[in-house]
Design a binder for these strands. Structure first.
Length: 669
RNA sequence: UGGCCUAUGGUGUAACUGGUAACACGUUGGUUUUUGGUACCAAAGAGUCUAGGUUCGAGACCUAGUGGGCCAACCA
C-alpha cells in the first residue's frame, strides 16, 4: 500500500532543512514541557501530538519534562494526572524529567553569569521595578542597583540562597538592556526568593528560577534539537537565545547542541474554553463534577465521555499546524470520534423516550430470542440474541398518528420494520385524559422480505433493563465564551448542559463494563460511566449519530446564512467593489452584466476620495479600472464635477487595449 | 504611540526551488441500506485582505496600508 506523500507543515519543513544542512538524524530530540498546575486539555493534545508525533515520525526520543519552578502552584496530583493522560493517548516518553532536577546546574551557571557581569541583584520593590521597566511603547530606565560590583552581587545572591532574606527583598536579574524594544529583554528576573516547599526538592531551595531562565537551559541540558511551543512565546525567543548563547560559552564541550525554539498557533475549539485557570474555576465552583466531568475539554473529561485516543490523535492530525490564530469547529472532533466508533462499537438497542407498543396479534405469553448483528462494519463482531414479545417500547419520536410520506416512521395505517424482528402496521392509539398517547396498538407480519421505508429500534418491556443515561450539551452557549472583555465567561454557561434520562436497554447490556462503548442504534454512541453500580448502569452519550432527518425539521423560517449576510453588511462598499472589480475582466459576459449592476448599486455609497485613490491603478489591472470607471459614472450622475484628474483617468481608459474598459469609459463621455 | 507574528472557500490546512488554487470537515443533491447511520457518487462554495512593485509569469518575493493576534506577573 503506497501512502500518499503528505505535505509537510512548517515545523517539518524546518526540520527537513536542518537535516539537509547537516544535522544528523540521531541528534533529533523533542520534549513536552507541562507545568504540573492543572489537568491537560484538548488544547494540549495539539502540543503533545506535534512533539510526540515528530518523535514517532523521525524515530527520535521525546522527553516528558515537568516545568516545575513554581512551588506555589504545583502539585503531585497534577504530575500523576498528566502522566496518565499522555500514556492514555498512546505516547511513550523517552525520559521522565523535571526542571527541578537542574536547579543545581542552573545555580552554578548563574554564579558564572554574575562573575561575568551578566546578572545582578536588585533590591527594590516590585512596583519600583515595574515602573522602571517602561511599557511596550516606552523604553525603560536603569534602576539604582544595576551597577553593583560583582563581589556585592555574589554575596547578596549567596545570602538569598542561604535563606537570609525574606521573600520580595531581593531578586536576581539578567543584565541586558532596559531600553530594549522587547520588554522581556529589559533585565528579566532570573531568581526570586520563595520560602515554599517544593513537591520534589522539598525544602532544599528557597530561591527558585523563573521560566525563561529555566526552560531554555533545561532544553539545552537535555540537548533538545527543536523546542516547540505556542505562539505567545515568540517574544521569549530572543531571551531564550540570549541565555542559551551565554551558557554555551561555559558548557559547549559537554553540551554541543544549541536548541532551536519554534512557535505554532495553539488550538482553539468553538464553544469551549481552554484556560487552565478558568477550567479550575469551573471545578472549584461546582459547575462541573470535577476535572474529568464529561463536559470538560480535558483529556480526562473526553476519556470519560467515551472519546478514544485514536479519535483525538486523528483530530489533531486533521487540524494541522500553522502560525495563524484559528478556531476549530467542534464538528470536526465529532466527526473523528464517530469515524472511529463506527468501526469498533457494537450496536445495541436502547429506548430513551419510551412509549408502549402492543402487538395485538402476537400471542400473550410468547417470547422469541431473535438474532441480531453486532456490527455490520465488522465481520468478526458476530451476533447476539435479543428477546421479542407482545409489549415493547419504542421512541415516542418514532410515531405519529398522521404524517406525510417523508416521515418514514410508524403512523396509523403505515408499515414499518422493527430492527432485527418483524414488520408491523400501526392500527390504533390509546390516550390518557390529557390526550397524551399511552399505547400504540399494531399488528405484525412475519413476511420480513417486504420493502418498507423505515426501521425502528425497540426493546421488550419485560426483558429491558432500566438504566441512567446522561446526555450532554455544550457547556457554553457562546461560540467564544472567553473572548468577551465586557462579559465574564461564566455568564455564557449553558444551564442545560446535562440531561439525566431514565432509559431502557436490551438485556445483553447487563454485563457491560465501565468504559465499554456501544452504539445505541439510530441514536448515537454511548459508554458506561464510572458512576455505574451493581444496581444501576450509567451511560454517557459520547456523541449522536449524524441525523439528516433532524436537519430537515427546523422550519424554513430560520435562515442560517447569517455569516455571509453579516460580512457583506460590515464590509465597506468600496472594498466590495474592489473585490468585484478585480475579477471583472475575466468573467463571462452574462456574469459581467450582473456584477456591473451590483457595482453600480454599491457605488452609491462610495465617496469621490475613495474613487480618486484608484485613478493610478496600474494599467494591467483592467478589472479594477473598469470598476473605477463604473463608480465614476455614478458619482458624475450624482453631481460630482469633472476635474482634470477625472479627465486624465478617462482618457487613459479610452486608450486602453481592453475593449470593455474602452466601452465603459466612452459611455461616461 | 514602539516591537514582533499573521492574513488562502463557512472552518481548518495544502500548493516542492515563482508556472493561475488542492485536501478534510461542514453544506446541498443522489445511489445503496433491516440504523433517516455507514459506504459510494456528485454539486455548490475562494481566485488567495487592499494598493504598488520585481518578473514573460506572484497565493508565494519586496514595500506600504488595512484587519487580527501577542508583549508592561517576583506565572508558565
Amino acid at each position: 500500500m503506497s501512502e500518499e506523500p503528505k505535505s509537510l507543515n512548517f515545523i517539518e519543513h524546518i526540520i527537513e532543512e536542518d537535516l539537509k544542512a547537516g544535522l544528523s538524524k540521531d541528534k533529533l530530540r523533542f520534549r513536552f514541557p507541562p507545568e504540573p498546575n492543572g489537568y491537560l486539555h484538548i488544547g494540549h493534545t495539539k502540543a503533545i501530538g506535534i512533539s510526540f508525533g515528530l518523535g514517532e515520525k523521525y524515530n527520535a526520543p521525546v522527553n516528558l519534562r515537568f516545568d516545575d519552578t513554581n512551588p506555589a502552584k504545583e502539585e503531585q496530583e497534577y504530575v500523576d494526572a498528566i502522566k496518565r493522560d499522555i500514556a492514555w493517548m498512546g505516547y511513550e516518553w523517552a525520559n521522565e524529567l523535571y526542571s527541578s532536577d537542574y536547579f543545581q546546574t542552573l545555580f552554578d551557571w548563574t554564579i558564572q553569569l554574575i562573575k561575568d557581569g551578566k546578572a545582578y541583584v536588585d533590591s527594590q520593590s516590585s512596583e519600583a521595578m515595574a515602573t522602571q521597566k517602561g511599557t511596550p511603547t516606552e523604553p525603560g530606565v536603569d534602576g539604582p542597583y544595576r551597577n553593583r560590583t560583582v563581589d556585592e552581587n555574589l554575596e547578596l545572591f549567596l545570602s538569598m540562597k542561604a535563606g537570609k532574606f525574606d521573600e520580595g527583598k531581593h531578586i536576581l536579574r539578567a543584565k541586558i538592556d532596559m531600553q530594549h524594544p522587547n520588554m522581556l529583554m529589559r533585565d528579566p528576573i532570573m531568581y526570586r526568593v520563595l520560602k515554599k516547599e517544593h513537591h520534589r526538592t522539598k525544602a532544599n531551595w528557597c530561591i527558585y528560577p523563573m521560566y525563561d531562565w529555566t526552560h531554555g537551559e533545561s532544553d539545552y541540558i537535555e540537548q533538545i534539537s527543536h523546542s516547540l511551543c505556542s505562539l505567545e512565546f515568540k517574544p521569549h525567543r530572543e531571551l531564550y537565545d540570549w541565555f542559551k548563547e551565554h551558557v554555551y560559552q561555559y558548557a559547549s564541550n559537554e553540551l554541543p547542541m544549541q536548541p532551536k525554539q519554534r512557535e505554532f498557533a495553539r488550538l482553539n475549539l468553538s464553544y469551549t474554553i481552554m484556560s487552565k485557570r478558568k477550567l479550575l474555576q469551573l471545578v472549584q465552583n461546582g459547575v462541573v463534577s470535577g476535572w474529568d466531568d464529561p463536559r470538560m475539554p480535558t483529556i480526562s473529561g473526553l476519556r470519560r465521555r467515551g472519546y478514544t485516543p485514536k479519535s483525538i490523535r486523528q483530530f489533531i492530525d486533521k487540524v494541522g499546524v500553522a502560525k495563524r490564530e484559528n478556531v476549530i469547529d467542534v464538528s470536526l472532533l465529532e466527526f473523528c470520534i464517530r469515524e472511529d466508533l463506527n468501526y469498533s462499537a457494537p450496536r445495541v438497542m436502547a429506548v430513551l423516550d419510551p412509549v408502549k407498543l402492543i402487538i395485538t396479534n402476537y400471542p400473550d405469553g410468547k417470547e422469541e430470542w431473535l438474532e441480531a448483528e453486532n456490527n455490520q462494519e465488522d465481520d468478526s463482531a458476530g451476533f447476539r440474541k435479543v428477546p421479542f414479545s407482545k409489549a415493547l417500547y419504542i421512541e415516542r419520536d418514532d410515531f405519529k398518528e398522521e404524517a406525510s410520506s417523508n416521515f418514514f416512521r410508524l403512523k396509523l395505517g403505515g408499515q414499518v420494520r422493527l430492527k432485527n424482528a418483524y414488520i408491523i402496521k400501526g392500527e390504533t392509539v390509546v390516550k390518557d385524559s390529557n390526550g397524551n398517547i399511552t399505547e400504540i396498538h399494531c399488528t405484525y407480519s412475519t413476511d420480513t422480505e417486504q420493502k418498507v421505508k423505515g426501521t425502528l429500534h425497540w426493546v421488550s418491556i419485560k426483558h429491558a433493563i432500566k438504566v441512567e443515561v446522561r446526555e450532554y450539551d455544550r457547556l457554553f452557549r457562546d461560540e467564544a465564551p472567553d473572548s468577551h472583555p465586557e462579559t465574564d465567561f461564566m455568564e455564557f454557561l449553558n444551564p442545560n448542559s446535562l440531561k439525566i434520562i431514565e432509559a431502557f436497554v436490551e438485556p445483553s447490556l447487563a454485563e457491560a463494563k465501565v468504559g465499554e462503548r456501544f452504539q445505541f442504534q439510530r441514536l448515537g454512541y454511548f459508554n458506561v460511566d464510572d458512576d455505574s453500580t451493581e444496581d444501576l448502569l450509567v451511560f454517557n452519550k459520547t456523541v449522536g449519530l449524524r441525523d439528516s432527518w433532524a436537519k430537515q425539521k427546523p422550519k424554513p423560517q430560520q435562515q442560517q446564512n447569517t455569516p455571509q449576510a453579516q460580512q457583506q453588511q460590515k464590509r465597506p462598499a468600496i472594498d466590495e467593489i474592489k473585490k468585484l472589480g478585480k475579477k471583472y475582466a475575466n468573467l463571462p459576459e452574462d456574469k459581467q452584466q450582473k456584477t456591473k449592476t451590483v457595482i453600480l448599486k454599491l457605488a452609491e455609497d462610495v465617496s469621490y476620495d475613495e474613487v480618486q485613490d484608484l485613478f493610478n491603478t496600474s494599467v494591467k489591472k483592467t478589472g479594477t479600472r473598469i470598476a473605477t470607471v463604473l463608480m465614476l459614472s455614478v458619482l458624475l450622475k450624482n453631481g460630482q464635477e469633472r476635474n482634470t484628474e477625472i479627465e486624465e483617468f478617462l482618457a487613459s481608459a479610452k486608450a486602453d487595449s481592453n475593449t470593455t474598459l474602452v466601452v465603459e469609459a466612452n459611455a461616461v463621455g
